[in-house]
Design a protein around this nucleic acid. Structure first.
Length: 271
DNA sequence: ATAATCACCTGCTCGC
DNA sequence: TGCGAGCAGGTGATTA
């Protein structure tokens, strides 16, 4: 489900409902997510007041005096603001009950998501320690990609999806940005020129920013914290369109697999 | 160090 | 209508 735009959309959707709220109670129905939810998490959170919701890569971070709550949505996770007491479905694993009478509910059918705790004073959490730059910052640019990619034989798409290189670019937006930049996804990362990496960095920023403005991409049932769907799916040029005509040149789009992930591109527009 | 594969888990779609 | 195969927005761990 969520790539960076969906996580950012979720952050913006839930933050107004959480800000200033006291946490009354944490209910964990299923602690077995990608990693177990810490058994003492409720004790740490109860009575604390939420100040803000931050995002790093695809993690949502809620800082407190004694540490930070870390949330990850995995492939199928979502967060919703709902009234306390609403009956829980099969995949509603966690509720964070607030003083307002509402709760933040974490739902995740595949359980690839995570709910973790970073204690204050501990070294940066291992999951956050080796992440690359945020794509929507100046640090992420063509020169950076060019330098990091030298002598690499892996496909440029795999390189772009590596969180140690840059965070937040998942399968949908990697496909879309490479199409927009006119670069074949299976080209060796080390053989793409500095100039073309400049274009790629620009297109990554553009496609992510546009998607955030549209509220993310809704596939299946993704919804933001306010329950509204995203509208970016209507603007996808290649993702999910294998075999269909390229919207630029009419050539049927080619679908291959790179790193076990579905990869779609136009043989005529991308070189 | 880099690249490829495996693994985690459920639900849905497709072909027979 | 039922059933197995394959696929899905992520990413750490393991293997060459």
């Amino acid at each position: 489900m969520p790539e960076l735009p969906e996580v950012e959309t979720t952050r913006r959707g839930i933050e107004p409902h959480l800000r200033g709220q006291r946490i009354e109670r944490l209910t964990v129905r299923q602690p077995r997510l990608r990693w177990p939810i810490p058994a003492d998490l409720g004790k740490r959170l109860q009575g604390q007041t939420i100040d803000r919701v931050e995002r790093r890569a695809k993690y949502l971070l809620i800082p407190f005096e004694q540490g930070t709550l870390m949330l990850h949505l995995g492939m199928s996770g979502s967060l919703r603001i709902l009234p306390i007491g609403l009956a829980a479905g099969k995949h509603d694993h966690v509720d964070l009950e607030l003083g307002s009478g509402q709760m933040l509910r974490f739902t995740d059918p595949r359980r690839f998501g995570a709910v973790l705790w970073q204690a204050r004073g501990e070294p940066l959490h291992p999951l956050l320690a080796h992440l690359g730059p945020e794509p929507l910052t100046d640090e992420f640019n063509g020169d950076y990609l060019f330098k990091r990619s030298r002598h690499r034989q892996a496909p440029v798409k795999t390189f772009l999806m590596d969180g140690r290189i840059v965070v937040g670019v998942g399968n949908i937006y990697a496909n879309e940005a490479l199409f927009a930049a006119g670069i074949r996804p299976d080209r060796a990362a080390g053989k793409v020129s500095r100039e073309r990496y400049g274009r790629l960095a620009e297109e990554v920023k553009r496609v992510l920013a546009r998607s955030i403005l549209q509220g993310g991409t809704t596939l299946r049932d993704f919804v933001g914290g306010d329950g509204k769907p995203g509208y970016f799916a209507q603007q996808l040029e290649v993702y999910g369109r294998g075999g269909e005509p390229c919207r630029v040149c009419g050539e049927p789009l080619t679908e291959i697999r790179l790193g076990q992930r579905s990869t779609v591109f136009c043989r005529r527009c991308q070189r």
